[in-house]
Design a protein around this nucleic acid. Structure first.
Lengths: 204, 204
DNA sequence: GCTTGACTATGACGCACGGCATATTATAGC
DNA sequence: GCTATAATATGCCGTGCGTCATAGTCAAGC
């Protein structure tokens, strides 16, 4: 199979970044964890760790946005939100609260380059990917809410609130080793959304 | 001055963890950054980096919870929320969006010990501190909301939503190098809170 | 003044890291 | 079958890390 090893490395890197963050994820650990050959790193990823991390982040981005966009356009914003949250709940529980969102990890730590020093340029590139992913998710929810009739500014604010609170609550769940924060946030967000949609549709 | 150097180290560690996370913050960098003597690390922190990080987290915990508790009990929950958010806005802007919440950083990454390997025990201790801090902040808001008349379950859920969304949005702001997410979340949270309080007080 | 204790300075140790070079093996294409 | 190219294996390099040991400094207390 062509590119089999490469893909395993990207997936393994994403999984490790979920659990440990970027800096605590070493290339050696990636190949140990995935059973892939160490010598192939430089072959598949000539730009080194930075490249591997970037592809892992893009993968994590897609794995969320693809089903989210699907569900929002097919079954509505609230259904999309439900699936979005359910996805995170699954990741948390399956990993015994050890895994979270790799995008958030990048936004919270500072990338340490190959020379062992913080690399502002590399960090900026990773941040750009993180920003793009977060904006993409938000945009999906935002357009869904606008289709539900909400005014643009309100839709944007609510979409921001959703992304922020879900990302934040995934971290809370890891700290408390419980899904209760996620449950609470889900309850409030769904109530808020349905109320906002109902209100604006009643005024039509 | 007794304990001057020690305090500078803790403050400097907290500041670096804000910007870089735990793993990207080395003890050598702390002493470089604070102008404190390297040889004093082992003297003031015989348990090493773990101890220094723990004290930095406790400091960050207190620096938030003390004024938050004050304001919530004195001027009400909404005022407390406003100050809470304002504090984060200040940290973001003063650092040009490079600093965030050290508590969140601990919840998102996995601590790498002195042997260069993940140390589950040490990580658990750091997570406990993070959990305690987050629960403390939440409890402050929760009791405030209950004093505003909200039923216990609702108060808890709203407090969780506030902490989650603000922590999450601070990370979003770092990624987008903008305070807009924080502004949007603030708008929605304040509206949600005042609405919830007004509703429950009208039904009295 | 000298001792005692707390604090500071400095270098060494072992380790894991990312990257690279080289050698070896598999897999095409023809 | 042979060759060219992709892929894998493995060891080395330099670096920064956390920790420790040892030596030096400095301020009280008597």
């Amino acid at each position: 199979m062509k590119g089999e090893t490469r893909k395993k490395m990207v997936v393994g890197a994403a999984d490790l970044i979920r659990r440990r963050g970027v800096n605590a994820t070493s290339m050696r650990e990636v190949v140990r964890h995935t059973g892939t050959p160490r010598g192939s790193i430089g072959h598949h990823f000539p730009h080194g760790k930075q490249q591997l991390v970037e592809e892992a982040l893009l993968l994590a981005h897609q794995e969320v946005s693809a089903p989210l966009a699907e569900l929002v356009s097919r079954s509505g914003t609230v259904s999309g939100l439900r699936a979005f949250i359910e996805g995170w709940r699954h990741i948390l529980q399956k990993s015994d609260f050890e895994a979270g969102c790799p995008i958030l990890a990048v936004a919270v730590e500072q990338y340490i380059g190959d020379d062992g020093l913080p690399n502002p340029l590399a960090q900026q590139q990773l941040l750009d990917i993180a920003r793009t992913a977060l904006e993409d998710w938000q945009k999906i929810l935002c357009t869904g809410l606008r289709k539900d009739g909400l005014p643009p500014a309100r839709a944007r604010r609510l979409a921001t609130l959703i992304i922020s609170s879900v990302e934040g609550t995934v971290a809370l769940c890891r700290a408390s080793r419980s899904v209760r924060p996620l449950d609470d946030v889900q309850t409030e967000l769904e109530a808020l959304l349905t109320s906002a949609i109902k209100t604006v549709q009643a005024s039509d």
